[in-house]
Design a protein around this nucleic acid. Structure first.
Lengths: 188, 188
DNA sequence: GACAGCATTTTACAAATGTTAAAAAATGAT
DNA sequence: ATCATTTTTTAACATTTGTAAAATGCTGTC
């Protein structure tokens, strides 16, 4: 595993020694498009890093399904509530393409956090990185209209537009699919 | 300082030894109501923990000011971008009452993260805690109407309703003050 | 290539929220 | 207490977005 982790962006800041410790508890897994990797109502025992493919996190409402996260190659992928509170959460994670993932058991990861300073700080930075991205989105919702959020999405994630169904992008942007269609129509 | 930190919730999980290391770089400061503790366009060199009083974080837009965070006693208070990326951010933090705060210089805190396993994991948990709260809010925006978000706020932060201007709560909930007034009127 | 099953767009109408301005209520200072 | 200032509510109207349903477009399979 060591040689494989080395090439993944998120591991690049780590020393060889830390990387070896992580490699020892990592396993590569492959799953098909359409797989629900994580279920909202179960405590998920694994932490994943996406090597290839794309995924989305969503919550089920009464009538709709809301996508609130997309992950591409290099993304970390875990159930927030399982990871942080060791309890079931509110997110499902679905693979939108065939995916290759690095899988680490949470109990192994937590043990490393308690043993290894460098890995503990690596884990801290993962949480901080997700935090700032999430806060950024919350603020954008307040300051930017739906059309501008769509344009930003186009600029920042051109890959995703091609590969993800628009209905998922609509809910990610916080509008209905009808509104997104209107925005796209006005755009041309 | 050691004896003072001991009584603050966020420090309670720490060993005496870790607490002493933190106490050695902590300082208590007091500031008056109305003080802007953190400015959006400056890299903020300190990290704070609120001992008493309340504060809000807000961003300035062209015509409005959007409050996106409230902190009460026990809250950690820092500029996300300064803390995480060492660069100016988008948040101002204003004290809404006279406040007593624990102040720690970021350079001191980062040094402890690199030296002390327990403190590094403590920092990780701080980020994770903020992360899950922020994600929760983003999802609530999608699934709940403004009236329900107001009711949740009443239930979860009854203190804040009494002590914070409604215009700030309106923008925190993602509506205009007019809409919040309508919700409150319908409520009775 | 025709068909079935989805995804996307369009249309018409409804509901929610925003905008502006004025009135009422609350707050603070003298 | 009174006055000035600020906050909150109310009103009227405009705009945005949502809902439901039909029309169109796309994809994969036989």
């Amino acid at each position: 595993m060591y040689g494989q982790l080395k090439n993944i962006e998120i591991f690049k800041s780590l020393s060889n020694e830390a990387l070896e410790r992580l490699a020892a508890v990592s396993k590569r897994v492959e799953h098909q498009k359409g797989t629900i990797l994580i279920y909202a109502d179960k405590t998920e025992p694994y932490f994943y890093i996406l090597e290839s493919g794309i995924a989305r996190a969503y919550s089920d409402g009464e009538s709709q399904q809301i996508t609130f996260w997309f992950g591409q190659s290099g993304a970390v992928l875990f159930s927030f509530n399982s990871y942080i509170n060791n309890s079931p959460g509110y997110e499902n994670i679905e693979l939108l393409e065939n995916c290759s993932l690095i899988q680490i058991r949470l109990t192994d990861l937590f043990l490393l956090y308690e043993q290894h300073l460098e890995i503990a700080n690596w884990g801290r930075k993962i949480a901080e990185h997700e935090l700032i991205a999430t806060e950024r989105r919350l603020i954008d919702r307040a300051f930017k209209g739906a059309a501008e959020r769509y344009q930003d999405f186009l600029d920042q994630s051109p890959e995703l537009i091609k590969r993800v169904a628009l209905k998922h992008i609509a809910s990610y942007l916080g509008v209905t699919q009808v509104t997104l269609s209107r925005i796209r129509a006005a755009h041309k």
